[in-house]
Amino acid sequence: MLLLPISLLAQQKIEAVAGADTTSIRIGEQVKVQLRATIPAAQFNKPAFRILFPVLPDSLEHFEVIARSAVDTTTQQDLKILHQTFTVTSFDSGHWEFPPMKVEVYGATDASSFDTLTTYPLGIDVNTVAVDTTKAFKPIKTVQTVPWNIWDYWMYIAGGAAVVLLALGLWLYFRKRPKKVPEVKLPLVTPYDLARQQLKTLKEEKLWQQGDIKQYYTRLTDILRAYFEHQFGIAALEQTSEELLQNIKPVTKLNQQRDKLRALLAIADLAKFAKLQPTADEHEDCMQKAEEILEWTRPKEEPANASANEKPAV
């Protein structure tokens, strides 16, 4: 019972210990140096607590550091154990001491505390290769040539043959591949004809007569925007009304109908977004403006008796 408080006190200390898996190696052999730090969990979990393991250089006196493992953390009862392994070697024969390693500890007792833990040096014997001096020395052998063997180059031969076969196969494939017959494109509906048909369908559905004002103007403006996009290359479906009015300026025919288009878009925007209830005359007038814009910008038809090789005028 008298020794119990001393044992508990020892467990509350932060300790750093270094060890090696062997104390005797031959030149060039490797030895693993283990660095372990034991910290009470109560101190380890403090917000200001930090512990820094040493950063060993690649070369020490009589030793070379080959590899370093990451710092592992394990829990054992109420202790935190930090562990790191250094793989080192030596090319100098003799008895050498691996130098002490320093572990820096911050915030163990309070936020401003600092301490340095230093391990003991490790004694390692580096031995040379034993030579039997009782036997006679043998002369150095001359350089000998190895006889050529085709099987030593089978991978290169197989690779070259595969490349040749692949090239031959591609040549035969492209040579015998049937030529593609050009597709004959059927005449498509022109943007003008499509827009005229859509306006006719919209009139027959009588949306505004049924009270669906917002749907009527949404369909009406979408038909015009799609016509502008396909006929004149304007990204009308992605633009606001003001952006569309600005972008039609370079198109001469379309710009001449700008006032009609502005009036139509203004009423449509108010009906779609401000819940305006236009009159019956305004509904009919917007449809009439849309038809007039289509007719004004309708592309000219080529004469039926035009020569087949004659290019249309731009």
Rank of each mutant, 00 (worst) to 15 (best):
Q256M: 11
K200M: 11
Q197A: 15
A226E: 11
A226C: 09
K260R: 12
D132S: 09
N255Y: 10
F228V: 05
Q209E: 14
L172G: 10
L224A: 01
F137E: 04
P147T: 04
Y227L: 09
I223N: 01
P187G: 08
T134M: 08
V189T: 14
Q231W: 03
W148V: 10
L186K: 15
A271H: 01
K185Y: 11
A167K: 06
Y192F: 14
E183F: 07
I267Y: 01
L186H: 13
A195M: 01
T145P: 01
V146W: 09
Q256P: 05
T142K: 15
L237T: 15
I150C: 02
F228W: 05
K179C: 04
L172I: 06
W148D: 07
E205Y: 07
N149E: 14
L265F: 14
Y173T: 06
P147I: 08
A161Y: 10
L165W: 10
L264M: 08
F273W: 15
D132R: 08
N247W: 08
A136Q: 14
E238G: 04
P178R: 15
L172N: 05
T190K: 03
I213N: 00
Y173C: 02
I234K: 00
E204C: 06
A158G: 11
E242K: 13
T252R: 12
A162D: 01
T201Y: 12
A226R: 03
K206H: 12
Q210G: 07
K260C: 03
K135H: 03
L207M: 02
V251K: 00
K206W: 03
A167Y: 08
K200C: 07
G233A: 10
